[in-house]
Design a protein around this nucleic acid. Sequence first.
DNA 1: GCTCATTTGTTCGTATGTATC
DNA 2: TGATACATACGAACAAATGAG
Lengths: 246, 246
Amino acid sequence: MNIMKKTNSDPTPVYYKLQKILQNEIERGRWSPGEKISPERSLAELHRVSINTVKKAILNLVHEGYLYRIQGKGTFVAGTTLRSESLRYYRLLSDFKDDEAHLKVKLLELKIIKCFRPANHYLDLDLNEDLYEIKRIFSSSENPIVYTISYLPQKMFENLSEYPITLFEKTTLYEALEKNYGLPTIYNHELFGAVKADAETAKKLEIPKGTALQFIEMISFTYRDRPYEYRRSYCNSDQRKIFREI
Amino acid sequence: MNIMKKTNSDPTPVYYKLQKILQNEIERGRWSPGEKISPERSLAELHRVSINTVKKAILNLVHEGYLYRIQGKGTFVAGTTLRSESLRYYRLLSDFKDDEAHLKVKLLELKIIKCFRPANHYLDLDLNEDLYEIKRIFSSSENPIVYTISYLPQKMFENLSEYPITLFEKTTLYEALEKNYGLPTIYNHELFGAVKADAETAKKLEIPKGTALQFIEMISFTYRDRPYEYRRSYCNSDQRKIFREI
DNA sequence: GCTCATTTGTTCGTATGTATC
DNA sequence: TGATACATACGAACAAATGAG
């Protein structure tokens, strides 16, 4: 009996079953981001359904960000849905003029440390597991604006330390991780707060200790709600504000 | 000649034309939020197109948040897309426990003032126009957490001062404005920063002057990208963080 | 520049199922 | 129960974009 058929005992629509089958295959990495999936007609034949049913399943996955389509070329697996580095996603405003800054990234440090609270909680790890700690400074015309510390589970990113520095300075972290480990970023959580600069942060940002700083904690998730990065950012929002849209 | 027809000189798809016609009617207030629009069949007949074409137009508007559908009942105009008060949309976290606070709102002041910089810029007004200024405190178990000052164009909200206090304390501002003025909130812009508490804010939040505060500026937009509220919020993020998802 | 096969995009018609009142 | 309205599913035809030859 055809598992695709809608029956009384299983009223799930056919298009929805197909949609979930495809979603599953994408998440399990049958195709990497950017790769072309089978054309509509093949899928229709394979699963013995109409082309319009395949269309509906695929279009839903396009809406959910799993796929994108190009007329005449095909249907492709989408990569990272967040198109740019989170820190660039926030536009920096100086005063009220929309003077968008071009940020330069500098890698300060990359080492392996033991997991700690609350990173273990956010990254769903045990306290005895290893983490990469990546410290970076984002500057605008020689002025340090943002100091970030990223934590990545060591077991998810083997050999990360052996990649060239440029991996962390030329491309965004998102692109780098997607390209080298096939992990697209599906969504982020963020925690916002205000703190006064401690000694280390003040030194890195070249500001007086005690300055009010915008503090952003971010947790990035890939498929299946799996967290893969915990990041702390300290932004010198003096004279600047951080902009975003809901 | 039928304007709906797709021709060589106008290759715009029929479903898209219909979609834009409907979007326009919604934005111009032909139906209020919650009201039922014409059924598929009628629209198909009226515009001389197939039901499937109408479906496509409508489903796109559903995806964009203009409409929602209930099988067997009809298709309805969606109201505010931001489902809850922005300040409640942010979950407050104390430390790392997900202790979601229930916030109580208190109206401190409602008066009419002259427009000022930068409100004129954000609300697209002249400097000589009038603004409502609404000051509110959000508290969690008697502790003031957030101090907000909202600015609304006087000309968009006639008689606002005559509404009962409960309008600003019982329901969210979004719901109140949608219900009384038929203005749904389509999206928000936000500016984040960190500031040290000035004298007035410190007093309102019952904290020492100079405490690091989370500062959020928000501009709310209704249909056609028309701004209708500029809001400044000062959050005492000491011990708490503000949470959101992208 | 052209043609052709492939692939997605649009539009229609039609039938049947299901939820609401 | 019947009328109304949306949901699912199939089939078919043609348009439009792409890439190969």
